[in-house]
């Protein structure tokens, strides 16, 4: 589904990713762990197409298409979803209106008719229950005045609505208490299928107690330096990132 080959990316002339390789197949859950500054969030931003980052060399193919050639919204319409580490507030724009616009643009892209108001609302109700999101939040402005946990649950709610092929969760666990963490993870697990894939980016192992990864990669200094199964996360938790540095 996703293939990253020798990816180099920089911001303001500073190289952050220095030859990253990664392949994700449908039905898989991958976790990327690493110390602060390793390039975890850069990877998420590059996948989504954030313009501040410059890809200097390497390739990313998504469903056999060149992802780097696509605009931000094309990537989203093709099924790349980024759950933001810091979800953005958009004053005056209601969550419902925002999502309806997004869904219908994606459906139009796929040649599907726009959703009726009734079907849309039914979907909102169904999916918001999944992450225990208060229905009243749907009518409030996007992320405005939401607590940290509500923002993250809202991200997963949007993910449930948009049904992406590849979901990239960028430090979704940061700032979450244990209950919220369980709800968010529960949402992600329910949405899991044989046709989609998930990339979990995290600093800590605790999220991976709830979302069990098939593969764990350690990102250090812009490269994946170690790959293993879910037990690698536990080992990292125990030994800390210094262990990886010394291995290197």
């Amino acid at each position: 589904m996703l293939k990253i080959t020798d990816l180099h990316a920089s911001i303001n002339g500073t190289e952050i990713l220095k030859g990253l390789n990664l392949e994700i197949k449908a039905g898989e859950i991958h976790a990327i762990m690493g110390p602060n500054g390793a390039g975890k969030s850069t990877l998420a931003s590059v996948l989504a197409g954030k313009e501040d980052y410059e890809v200097t060399s390497g390739a990313i193919t998504f469903e056999d298409q060149d992802l780097l050639e696509m605009s931000i919204e094309e990537r989203a319409r093709e099924g790349v979803f980024l759950a933001f580490q810091y979800p953005v507030e958009i004053p005056g724009v209601s969550n419902v209106n925002f999502l309806k616009t997004a869904m219908n643009e994606i459906r139009e892209h796929k040649g599907m008719p726009a959703l009726s108001a009734k079907d849309f609302l039914r979907l909102v109700k169904e999916k918001s229950a999944l992450v225990d999101l208060d229905a009243s939040l749907a009518s409030r402005a996007v992320n405005e005045g939401f607590s940290g946990g509500e923002k993250k649950r809202n991200e997963i709610f949007q993910m449930a609505m948009l049904e992406p092929k590849l979901a990239v969760l960028d430090e979704t666990d940061s700032g979450l208490d244990i209950d919220a963490l369980r709800i968010v993870a529960g949402g992600v697990n329910t949405l899991k299928s044989a046709n989609n894939a998930t990339l979990v980016i995290t600093h800590y192992q605790r999220l991976l107690d709830h979302i069990i990864p098939d593969f764990v990669h350690v990102l250090y200094d812009g490269k994946i330096v170690k790959t293993g199964g879910k037990e690698l996360a536990l080992e990292l938790e125990e030994k800390g990132y210094d262990w990886i540095k010394s291995v290197e």
């Binding site: 919204e73 953005v88 005056g92």
Partner: peptide
């Protein structure tokens, strides 16, 4: 960026944001 990441075109995103900005 947030709007576009959700599949909304730039033109439409601007319209959304501006309308929200003028909501009051």
């Amino acid at each position: 960026f947030y709007c576009q990441q959700r599949g909304i075109s730039e033109e439409k995103a601007i319209s959304l944001i501006v309308n929200g900005y003028c909501k009051e």
